[in-house]
Write a protein that binds this DNA or RNA. Structure first.
Lengths: 104, 104
DNA sequence: CCTCATACCTCGTCATACTAGGCATCGGGT
DNA sequence: ACCCGATGCCTAGTATGACGAGGTATGAGG
């Protein structure tokens, strides 16, 4: 998978994953990989900064939890994140439709 | 249209446009706009560097032509460009399928 | 003439994915 | 007892690519 292809689309996908169920960073990475059938096997250096960015933008909120002696930062969607997700899905639909119109 | 969304996808679209018929820069911009129903109305500062990049990579070749007293650089696909286009279309199909799997 | 559309170009900026490192805990294998 | 892999978090720096802003030149129309 070309690295640049992802640009601008990762945030929406993270919102979709966290929107389905609150999750911590590692779980987000796993879920992105699972939902994409292995296509998106992203390094932590990609996902963690994106999570921080989304939280800074007020689209995600986080809290610490402990599971099996390990600390996890669990993210959930904020109300603004929910509407951002809706907008992102629509933008993806428009974008992919436009690309297909050109590539066809 | 979010600027970053385009990243990594523009090259394939330019190859598709030029692959349909040789074209000069302005015509590529017009055709991208037309095929995308106005979604991709790209500035010259985006398209010209992309054309140069593709030519430097050997995927496009150019020659000067004159039409109505104006000089145009007309691009055509090279053989390598043709196979790159095929590859890019497949990559787009894989990518969009993966994104839809995540967003759904 | 003067402006607009056509037609080309380049330089600097910005956003963002990734590389490469760092830290800590836990379980399993030797 | 010890090491290592997986889990789990983090950050600083790099590379890439789309874009904004600026430049040049020609031809047509008012």
């Amino acid at each position: 998978m070309r690295a640049e292809s992802l640009k601008g689309h990762l945030d929406g996908m993270i919102l979709a994953v966290v929107g389905a169920a609150p999750a911590h960073g590692y779980a987000v990475i796993d879920e992105l990989k699972r939902r994409s059938a292995g296509a998106f096997d992203l390094p932590e250096g990609t996902v963690y900064p994106a999570l921080h960015r989304l939280e800074a933008d007020g689209l995600l909120a986080s809290s610490w939890a402990t599971a099996g002696g390990r600390k996890r930062r669990v993210y959930r969607l904020t109300r603004r994140g929910r509407s951002a997700l809706t907008r992102r899905r629509r933008e993806w639909a428009d974008f992919s439709h436009a690309v297909e119109g050109v590539l066809a």
